[in-house]
């Protein structure tokens, strides 16, 4: 326990010593308590894009680029008013704090290949994840969420953005959920994945090149212990199975199309 606390303190010291003031770019390196084990990065962002890429290193590397404000009159940012990037690490969980409430900050993050991500963003940028294996909980209200060359499982939500996922491998146990209001959902899956799909689009269409066993009128029958009532409903969802079926993937959009593609 003492070692962990000491490591946390060291990492905090290390982090605060690194930022490059005045260059419009901040960078911090966060060492991990257990460098050989998978970890998690958690970021609550407001404005800007977040790009996460897996690499062969053992530390988490965060670079913050301040996007030139619109009233810069074509000039570069030389100095910002306060240090806005900090991070803490405990038991391989890295919590990043960025004060992007007033300014747009684009984050570029390098993580070891096996890492999970909990990222939320509000505006002014996309969330993009590349070459990482883990659990991804991503929420980007007004931008796209794109995953390339990843494995594991994902829970993604956006309101105005599109969702694109490109999975090499999926966790055979974990469910997934992808939902958007305005955007389209584009899901690339390995051909041998065993998945049960539950999909719905209000004003769009669903397409797939998988041989999906569609069960459009799945009847839900549920009993309740006290009232002993049985409820049967026909719902507006489209149910389907890829290969033998497996954990449920909930895919929902209001105004976009849904594409379930076989990864080639």
């Amino acid at each position: 326990m003492k070692i962990i606390i000491r490591l946390c303190l060291y990492s905090l010291l290390f982090c605060s010593s690194l930022p490059f003031f005045g260059s419009g770019t901040d960078q911090i390196l966060i060492p991990l308590s257990n460098p050989d084990k998978p970890g998690t990065v958690s970021i609550n962002h407001y404005k800007g894009s977040i790009h996460v890429t897996g690499y062969s290193g053992k530390t988490v590397m965060i670079t913050a680029n301040y996007r030139n404000p619109t009233n810069s009159n074509g000039m570069k940012l030389i100095s910002s008013s306060a240090v806005t990037l900090s991070a803490t690490e405990k038991n391989n969980v890295v919590v990043v704090k960025v004060n992007s409430y007033r300014r747009t900050i684009d984050l570029d993050i390098r993580v070891p290949y096996e890492f999970s991500l909990i990222i939320s963003n509000d505006d002014n940028g996309d969330i993009l994840v590349r070459d990482v294996s883990g659990v991804f909980e991503l929420n980007n209200n007004n931008g796209d969420v794109k995953l390339f060359n990843v494995s594991g499982s994902a829970i993604i939500s956006t309101i105005d953005g599109n969702i694109l996922t490109d999975f090499i491998n999926v966790d055979p146990e974990m469910p997934m959920a992808l939902s958007t209001i305005e955007g389209q959902i584009d899901m690339n899956l390995p051909g041998n994945a065993n998945i049960s799909l539950k999909m719905r689009t209000e004003y769009g269409e669903i397409y797939s090149d998988f041989n999906i066993n569609i069960d459009k009128r799945k009847i839900n029958i549920r009993k309740h212990k006290n009232t002993r009532s049985t409820n049967i409903t026909l719902d507006g969802w489209t149910y389907g199975k890829i290969n033998n079926g497996g954990p449920e993937y909930l895919i929902k959009t209001l105004n976009g199309n849904i594409y379930i593609k076989k990864k080639k």
């Binding site: 909980e137 829970i155 993604i156 959920a177 909930l250």
Partner: peptide, 8 residues
Amino acid sequence: PNPNVRLA
């Protein structure tokens, strides 16, 4: 806190 969990 997660909208997808609320949806579920």
